Amino acid sequence: MNQNELWTAIGEEIVNSNLEYERIKFLGFLSCTNYRGENYHENLDYDDVLKITEAYVALGGGGLALFGTACLYAWPETLSQVIQRFEDRTIIDRTKFMDDSCYKGTLGACFSTTLGSVLHELCHTFDLGHTEVGIMGRGFDDIYKDFLCEERLDQSNDLECQKLKEKSGYGSLGKFVRERRKQKGIVNNIFLTKSCVTILAYHRWLNSFQLSDKVVKFDPLTKLVSSTAGLRVIELRDEENGMVLLHWIFDGRILKYSFKLPEEDLQKYGCKYVVFVEDNHGNILKHVNM
């Protein structure tokens, strides 16, 4: 079974169970993933590695984010081991273990990439699309940067970081880190773009909106988007890969109830795109333009 088939099969089991799936988001790890390391050789790229991994999956959407378990060997068993695992530069033996480290090849990088991937796919269950940068791009590979003092202080060790904390206090340390990053060109790609943050800010799963008769609409002929509750975010997404191509955000106190998509912008992307709309009450519309 491929990733889509695995996700669909597990999703159907959840829907057909007595679990209240309409009120729950599920994060699942598939225990039957099997990496066939005996078939590995040095010329394999990442796509080839996936081919020798049975029941591999990293897919999220709807109410389910599902992951294979071939790389859980790189994960800590307790919270106290998290920093130690991120710092682990042991080279992965690819004849025995799957290497999902974005070609970095270490246990710490494998933990970082796979943990970040979990966050990425879980965000898809809250209707976020793909972005060029940040967590919804490939920024999730660098999730370790939000945990390690060593990375934040440009290769300073943990003892030096701790001393700085004790001397400066958390607030001063944060300012110091930002300045040090700016000077050294250290980039932290662990963030959500503004349109993603706006979607989450008004998402029904993260708010206590009451059910209402407010309606969000899109007219494919006039390209007019409207909502009786007021618009908050509109995204134009690639129909094939979910990449956010354009976005319009309405975060002012004065609500905007309609917006006409600029024709010149639409023409740049042909006819295959998805119009994603969320309004002030968390109502979501996804219109596939063909």
Rank of each mutant, 00 (worst) to 15 (best):
R178D: 10
I190H: 03
S156I: 00
K163M: 14
E160G: 01
G169T: 04
V177I: 15
K167I: 11
V177E: 10
Q155I: 00
C161T: 03
S172Y: 07
G174L: 14
G185N: 07
N157G: 04
E179D: 10
R181D: 03
Q162C: 04
S195K: 03
L192Q: 08
S168T: 08
K184T: 12
N189T: 07
G171I: 06
Q183S: 13
Q162P: 03
G169A: 07
K175T: 05
D158Q: 09
T193S: 14
L159H: 04
F176H: 14
E160T: 01
K167P: 02
T193L: 11
S195L: 04
G171S: 10
E160I: 02
K165V: 07
E166H: 10
Q183D: 12
S168R: 11
S168I: 10
L192G: 07
I190A: 04
K165N: 09
K167T: 13
F176P: 00
K163L: 15
R180D: 04
N189V: 02
Q155S: 12
L164K: 14
K184C: 10
G171T: 09
S168K: 11
Q162A: 10
K163H: 11
L164C: 05
N157V: 00
K163G: 01
D158F: 03
N188G: 03
K163A: 09
V177A: 02
K184H: 10
S172A: 11
Y170W: 15
K175G: 08
Y170K: 13
D154S: 00
Q155W: 03
E160S: 02
L192F: 15
D158N: 03
I190R: 03
F191I: 06
C161Q: 02
R178A: 12
Y170E: 14
K184R: 11
S168P: 02
S168D: 07
E179K: 13
N157E: 05
E166Q: 13
S168Q: 07
R181H: 08
K165R: 11
E166L: 15
S168A: 12
F191Q: 03
I186V: 12
K182L: 14
L164P: 00
V177K: 01
G171E: 09
L192I: 11
L164R: 14
N189Y: 10
T193Q: 14
K182M: 13
G185D: 06
N188S: 13
F176M: 14
S172D: 08
D158E: 12
E160H: 01
K167L: 15
R178T: 12
F176R: 15
L159R: 05
N157R: 01
Y170V: 11
G169P: 05
S168H: 08
G174P: 00
C161F: 02
V177G: 00
N157D: 15
K182W: 09
V187K: 15
C161D: 01
S156W: 11
G174A: 08
K194V: 12
G185T: 04
L159M: 07
I190K: 00
R181N: 07
I186D: 01
L173N: 03
K184Q: 11
D154M: 02
D158Y: 05
D154H: 02
Q162I: 07
K182I: 06
L164Y: 12
N188T: 07
T193Y: 00
T193E: 15
V177R: 01
R180V: 04
I190M: 10
T193R: 08
Q155K: 13
V187Y: 13
N189E: 15
